[in-house]
Design a protein around this nucleic acid. Structure first.
Length: 403
RNA sequence: GCUGGAAUCGUCUAGUGGCAAUGACAAGAGACUGUAAAUCUCUCGGCUUCGGCCUUCGUAGGUUCGAGUCCUACUUCCAGCA
């Protein structure tokens, strides 16, 4: 089981540490979106320097390119992309369900690559195998996304997600058993299964299957149910009963009603396992609500996508640096920010880089936005720890969202 | 000097008798939440009571119900020949 220590609680909120084979994550934490094993526009060194603790890659994208075998051969995701810190993979379900012409059956999903039209099939088992090959520390179960917001569709998607979760768990445990047999021998009574961290070399297996990464990997179930809190409760109960290491909360698209939903779900989920709020974190409000109601980690493509499109966070809300009014603004983007962008460059310079479509515009903007969100969650963690959360939330949000 | 060719909204460009006029870029603004996103959308002659009205395709005339489009002259530019 994934080790998760909780040091402090305040209502549903908690402060803790997730211990992964590639290091610790102090929670609550924002996990950078590295869909194709890269945080767009940034190097892993830059991600490290801006304070990121973990990244999340996407199984769908990595299956298409470069292929999961290649990542396994490289020594796993964290070695391949030189991150060397905790990693997550999303199952790919979310992406596949958003493709046109997907064929969904109880067995799994058939789809065509959006790159070259090649046919692929993904099942709960194959998603687990792909994620084990990619070798992130934490995997997300292959879930079914509802085709609409309707209750009938949500219910169908939830039940299939549950059935698929059972298959994900079986396959995950099979892969973990195989790994531990290969590298640690049969479990001894009284001795914990989890191995000490080791060098992340790929090991040649002597068993029929060809190779395997030596470190343990962990699985999160996904809670579904859309905007229907009774479905959310049902899903949380189902997931809570499974031998998984943590939980993803999926299918959340707006902050409206999110707090109530999280209260329902997180009151049911076991306290001693981490919870990841899938895909939320573009709006600071999401992060405050998520942390307040018991979520430990977040990921979101928003900060870096916004950055590439010139929409930059400040304490007074987002600004579009491409606007003409910043042409002669020779002040830092955010004066009290200690990111590389704000410490060294002015709004006028950023404006110029964007207007001339220089690559560095996206680099500096991504550094700032990612830093902004990572540090906001860091502050939330500190505030929870010292009891000032409500004050911090109030002062941050009233300034950020004032009009 | 002669002979061709060309002048269109910031720029380049489409247009060969019904046109406020094509497309691209530039410019102005907006969107973006488990990334088919360095992407996408809107505006882009002026006014408007949103039905229109006014002014526009180098300049000045002309032909025509009607001209960016045809004719004449002029101006400027390009090419070739002197």
């Amino acid at each position: 089981m994934l080790k998760f220590d909780i040091h402090h609680r305040q209502g549903l909120a908690r402060v803790g540490i997730i211990h992964t084979p590639h290091g610790d994550i102090k929670t609550p934490a924002f996990v950078g979106a590295a869909t194709r094993a890269v945080v767009k526009a940034l190097t892993m060194q830059e991600m490290n320097d801006l304070g990121s603790q973990a990244i999340l890659a996407n199984t769908y994208h990595l299956i298409l390119r470069p292929g999961t075998d290649l990542i396994e051969e490289a020594g796993g995701l964290a070695t391949f992309n030189s991150w060397h810190k905790p990693t997550f993979t999303d199952s790919g379900g979310f992406q596949i369900f958003s493709l046109p012409n997907v064929k969904i059956t109880e067995e799994g999903v058939k789809f065509k690559s959006h790159i070259d039209g090649r046919n692929f099939e993904m099942t709960p088992e194959s998603s687990m195998q792909a994620q084990w090959a990619i070798g992130a520390d934490i995997h997300i179960a292959f879930d079914h996304l509802a085709k609409s917001e309707s209750r009938a569709d949500m219910e169908e998607a939830m039940h299939r997600t549950h059935r698929w979760l059972d298959r994900c768990v079986d396959e995950h445990l099979r892969l973990e058993d195989r790994r531990s047999m290969l590298f640690e021998g049969p479990p001894e009574a009284g001795k914990p299964r989890m191995s000490a961290p080791r060098p992340w070399r790929r090991a040649e297996a002597t068993q029929p299957e060809k190779s395997m990464l030596v470190y343990p990997q962990y699985l999160y179930a996904v809670v579904q149910g859309g905007t229907f809190n009774d479905l959310r409760a049902e899903s949380a109960k189902y997931c809570a009963a499974k031998p998984v290491d943590g939980f993803g909360i999926g299918g959340v698209f707006t902050a409206d009603g999110m707090g109530e939903m999280l209260q329902t779900v997180n009151a049911i989920l076991p306290e001693d396992k981490p919870r990841h709020l899938l895909g939320m974190g573009q709006e600071p409000l999401d992060l405050f609500i998520g942390a307040e109601f018991g979520c430990d980690t977040f990921d979101c493509v928003g900060p870096t996508r916004m950055a590439r499109n010139g929409s930059l966070y400040t304490k007074d809300g987002r600004i579009n640096i491409k606007n003409a009014k910043y042409t002669r603004d020779f002040t830092p983007l955010m004066p009290d920010c200690d990111c590389e962008c704000c410490k060294n460059y002015t709004r006028a310079y950023l404006h110029h880089l964007f207007k001339t479509d220089e690559i560095t515009a996206k680099v500096l903007a991504s550094i700032h936005n990612e830093h902004f969100i990572v540090r906001t969650v860091d502050h939330i963690r500190a505030a929870l720890q010292d009891g000032s959360f409500q004050d911090y939330k109030q002062s941050f949000l009233s300034r950020y969202y004032q009009k």
